[in-house]
Computed example of a mutant assay.
Amino acid sequence: MAHTVVIAPDSFKGTVAAAAVAEALAAGWRTERPSDALRLLPMADGGEGTVAAFAAAVPGARRMSVTVTGPEGLDVAASWVLLPPTPGTPGGTGVVELASTSGIEMLGTPPRLRPFDAHTRGFGQAIAAALDHGVSRLVLGIGSSSSTDGGAGMLTALGARFADAAGQPIVDGARGLADVATVDLSALAALPAGGVTVLSDVTNPLLGARGAAAVFGPQKGASPSDVAALDAALERFADAIAEAAPGADRDAAGAGAAGGTGFGLLAWGAQLVPGSAAVAQLVGLGDAIGAASIVLTGEGSYDGQSAAGKVPAHVGALAAAAGVPVALVAGRIASDADVSGFAATASLTALAGSGEGAMGEPVRWLTAAGAQLARALG
Rank of each mutant, 00 (worst) to 15 (best):
L230W: 06
A163H: 05
V16E: 07
W80H: 11
A20N: 09
A52Q: 15
G353Q: 05
G290F: 11
V283D: 06
A37I: 03
A321W: 00
G94C: 02
A187D: 15
D336C: 14
F123S: 00
P9H: 07
K13R: 11
A130T: 04
L272M: 10
L282I: 05
I127G: 01
F54K: 01
R332F: 05
D132H: 08
L328F: 05
L107N: 02
V6F: 10
V329F: 12
P34H: 10
R137H: 14
V68L: 07
L265P: 00
L185E: 06
A128E: 04
V95G: 03
P115F: 11
V198N: 03
G73T: 11
F12E: 03
A291W: 04
I294Q: 12
D231C: 13
A369V: 11
A44K: 08
G88L: 12
R364I: 09
A320Y: 03
G355I: 00
G260K: 05
T69K: 00
D338P: 11
A252D: 07
M64L: 10
A369I: 10
V21E: 05
Q305I: 14
T89M: 07
A350Y: 02
A358G: 12
A244S: 15
N204M: 06
A343M: 12
V227A: 03
P115K: 03
L83P: 04
M154Y: 02
R236E: 09
M1Y: 06
F216L: 01
G108I: 12
A238H: 02
E72K: 11
G195A: 14
A214D: 06
V66H: 03
K220R: 14
A244D: 13
F123L: 06
A8I: 04
P84A: 11
E243D: 15
A77L: 13
T182W: 08
P169M: 10
A99N: 13
P84F: 13
R137L: 09
A26R: 02
K310L: 13
G46C: 04
A321G: 01
V66R: 00
A252Y: 07
L40C: 10
S293E: 15
P224C: 03
L131T: 04
L351W: 13
T15P: 02
R112S: 15
G108S: 07
D172Q: 07
V16H: 08
V16D: 07
L191T: 03
A178Q: 05
L348N: 06
V311L: 10
L38G: 04
G124H: 02
L266F: 09
Q219V: 09
S145T: 10
A174I: 05
V363D: 15
A327E: 08
L266E: 00
A22D: 03
P362H: 06
L377I: 14
I7R: 01
S79D: 15
W268V: 01
T86G: 14
V196L: 06
G150W: 03
G49Y: 08
G46N: 10
D117L: 14
S79K: 00
G94R: 00
L296N: 04
F162Y: 13
G304W: 09
T345G: 12
H314V: 15
P85C: 05
V315A: 03
R33V: 08
G331R: 02
A212E: 08
G92D: 12
L296T: 03
A320P: 08
A350N: 10
A229C: 06
M106G: 01
W268I: 01
A337C: 08
S293N: 12
Q372N: 09
R114I: 01
G176Y: 04
